[in-house]
């Protein structure tokens, strides 16, 4: 028991903060920031407000593309509560900038940029498009225009992600879809009512986590 406590304590003392997950950003902002105008020159220059890329992305998904927090969190590859935190921080910063007349700059953050993948029909190669603004019309390798869109996740690991005979269920409306192995049910969003799915028979799983085997 004492040994166990010591272990626990030493763990607490050397504990470092949990490493943040990388957030996926589908399209970076077209500008680096925003400047206020008409500011009283006598008031001097206020320091700028820095918005991270993931905060910009959260705001774009929620308020521009009109996704709800569940859908947006799936798109960014983070949990729903994390997404809500990122979004709240984005709004807080923008409000600060508006009220105090401060400049906004978009930079930094724990993000990676995702791009679309394509397949060339004539040379059989796969390639991505790092410039989202430009359209892909020909293969960068052989120049052929026989190019089709490609989903790397769906074909890269056909064994890892397949359908099993289990189901994911929506706890709100009861809608069921086939469970895909390797993909947590909580990442699926119900197409009917937009709430998170759960594995059928999930209460058992919940009890186990609380220790009531």
């Amino acid at each position: 028991m004492v040994h166990y406590l010591c272990k626990e304590l030493s763990f607490i003392i050397i504990m470092s903060p949990r490493i943040k997950k990388l957030r996926k950003v589908l399209s970076p902002p077209p500008v680096k920031g925003f400047k206020p105008y008409g500011r009283d020159p006598e008031a001097g220059r206020a320091p700028e407000v820095t918005i991270h890329y993931e905060e910009y992305e959260a705001l774009r998904l929620c308020d521009y593309d009109m996704y709800n927090h569940h859908q947006a969190s799936v798109l960014m590859g983070v949990s729903r509560p994390t997404f809500t935190r990122i979004y709240a921080s984005a709004r807080e910063k923008i409000a600060t900038a508006f009220v105090e007349g401060r400049q906004i700059s978009v930079e930094g953050g724990k993000v990676y940029f995702d791009s679309d993948w394509y397949e060339c029909g004539s040379c059989g190669s796969f390639f991505n498009n790092p410039e989202r603004e430009t359209r892909v019309e020909s293969c960068p390798l052989c120049g052929s225009d026989n190019v089709t869109g490609h989903e790397p996740d769906s074909q890269a690991q056909p064994d890892a992600e397949g359908y099993s005979n289990e189901y994911c269920m929506c706890p709100a409306c009861g809608y069921q879809i086939e469970h895909r192995t390797g993909r947590p049910c909580s990442q699926e969003v119900c197409p009917q009512c937009n709430s998170r799915m759960r594995r059928t028979g999930a209460p058992k799983y919940r009890n186990r986590r609380r220790g009531e085997r």
């Binding site: 990676y112 940029f113 059989g124 796969f126 390639f127 498009n129 293969c139 120049g143």
Partner: peptide, 27 residues
């Protein structure tokens, strides 16, 4: 992706460098 470098994946492991260079030169 963040460096905006394009990736091209060739699954065919028997492809020679000369063949790829030829394709690139033609294109």
């Amino acid at each position: 992706d963040s460096l905006k470098i394009r990736m091209i994946v060739i699954k065919d492991a028997g492809k020679k460098i000369s063949e790829i260079l030829e394709l690139l030169e033609k294109n």
